[in-house]
Amino acid sequence: MNISGNTIFIPGSTSGIGLALALALRAKGNTVIVGGRRTELLERIAAAHPGIDTVQIDVADPASVASATKQVLAGHPDLNVLVAMAGVMHIEDWRDPASFLTTAESTVTTNVLGPIRLIAALVEHLQTRPDATIMTVSSGLAFTPLKVTPSYNASKAAIHMLSESLRLQLAGTSVKVTELEPPSVRTALLPGQEDNELAMPLDEFVAEVVDLIEARPDAEEIQVERVKYLRYGEARGDYDEVVRTLNHSDPHGE
């Protein structure tokens, strides 16, 4: 993905990493469309950042995905980048099925079916563009599990393998598949995470991501330095130690 000159749709970008990345990419000379469920947040973003387009979308609702992507393409027929950012994360206790089943189902619907629906809605169009990108968003937890978020870990592992598979299928087309792999970042994804000193500051994360995109436009995986400890534990041979360290040091790891 080139760092500038794109038209980029980022569903799930009304806050946190998504919004910060949307603003950073717009500052680099891209047209950016922000998507989200809450119209009041979309209106606030549009007012605060003239030039950013917005669209209401709920990736957990197939009809909403179909309607929103149709709206985006009608207004932006030159769309060439999808960043499938939408995601949720919940603490779960699998010793008590009544306490986790609903959140587990919601996590899979948003984090796995959401990107699948978005890609399905846009992949034909993207193949008509001369230089297109599908950016998926997994996590360092796709490679090293945080024990209190089983469904989130599994959903992001699924996104990693989906990305790997799509890259193989779309080889030879104009569409590149890039996987963004965040570490823990100071956002509101979990309670208290915004103030977690062990998490990476949001502005530092997004700045490093933008630098990586600019330096390596053909990168298949975008990994800030902080995520590599989780990403490559198995390859280094210290996976068990990485799992212990993560779950001992994280405030949600009990």
Rank of each mutant, 00 (worst) to 15 (best):
I91P: 09
W94Q: 10
R95K: 12
R95W: 01
P97M: 08
A104G: 12
E105Q: 11
S106Y: 03
T107F: 01
V108C: 02
T109P: 00
V112F: 13
P115M: 04
I116T: 06
R117W: 07
L118N: 12
V123G: 04
V123K: 09
L126F: 03
P130E: 13
P130C: 03
D131H: 11
T133N: 15
T133E: 14
M135D: 06
V137L: 14
S138Q: 02
G140S: 01
T144E: 09
P145H: 05
L146K: 09
N153A: 00
A157Q: 08
I159C: 00
L162Y: 02
L162R: 08
L162Q: 07
S165V: 02
L166M: 10
A171P: 13
T173S: 14
E181Q: 08
P182M: 10
R186T: 00
L190C: 07
D195H: 12
E197Q: 11
E197M: 13
L202K: 09
F205V: 01
F205A: 03
F205Q: 06
V210K: 14
D211K: 14
E214C: 04
A215W: 10
A215S: 12
E220S: 12
E221C: 04
Q223V: 02
R226K: 14
Y229C: 01
Y229P: 02
L230F: 12
Y232W: 13
Y232I: 00
